[in-house]
Design a protein around this nucleic acid. Sequence first.
DNA 1: CACTAGGGCTAGGGTTCG
DNA 2: TCGAACCCTAGCCCTAGT
Lengths: 128, 128
Amino acid sequence: MAPKKWWTSKEEEALKAGVKEYKAGNWKDILKDPRFASILANRTNIDLKDKWRNLNGGGCVSAGRRKASTSRPPDKRIVPKYVQVQDNDLEYLKYIEDPNGTDLDTMMNFLKVRIYILLFCICFHWFV
Amino acid sequence: MAPKKWWTSKEEEALKAGVKEYKAGNWKDILKDPRFASILANRTNIDLKDKWRNLNGGGCVSAGRRKASTSRPPDKRIVPKYVQVQDNDLEYLKYIEDPNGTDLDTMMNFLKVRIYILLFCICFHWFV
DNA sequence: CACTAGGGCTAGGGTTCG
DNA sequence: TCGAACCCTAGCCCTAGT
């Protein structure tokens, strides 16, 4: 088995746009489109098919049918090893590219930059 | 939820022998082996995997899949809806009580307090 | 050989129950 | 509360059919 390559939002959006353009099933056509080729460079037509299946509830691709989702609603509970992103946190994260989430290190770097800018503004204000 | 079927010693020994033969991760191969098939008749490959995980303290299970490593490296991966806590992030989080993690809002409030303290120290230093 | 549909498999986090 | 057993699903693989 190859190590899992998790789909990024960018890839997911490219796939959705590709399906909108070429319809589901024409995976190779999507891959060959120059608009999506670079984004989906390390995805195969099989990968596209599998991802589309997952996006549609794991059922079959053309006629979706699947039992009701049993997934837990995104409440405020403590999540071991993970920090859950709440809706009201989006304000803090809106400048981070991936809307689906990001690793904490990236977020921390983002916050550091914000702090440095804030400090610079304060210093500038006091000097002039 | 299905009623729990507790593992017998015989099943456990068969699982261990199967892992010795086929390496952990090849659960279906173990089930198909005639030496173990009858003993593990009412266990699925998922059951084998889960049991092996329990036998090994809940950690990583598959050390020898036939084709390649399937385990995803635990670094920097993008996690939709979740922000993974990295080892080098513990520095930021060590003052938060819950060792298992916390929701992002709590962490953000913690960071805000740290920033206010920092600003106060700077102001104090400049005034005196 | 190239491509797609669909079933099957594993890993790993989550959930339930004793 | 804790852990064994079970559930859920993303991503990948395998095979049949065209």
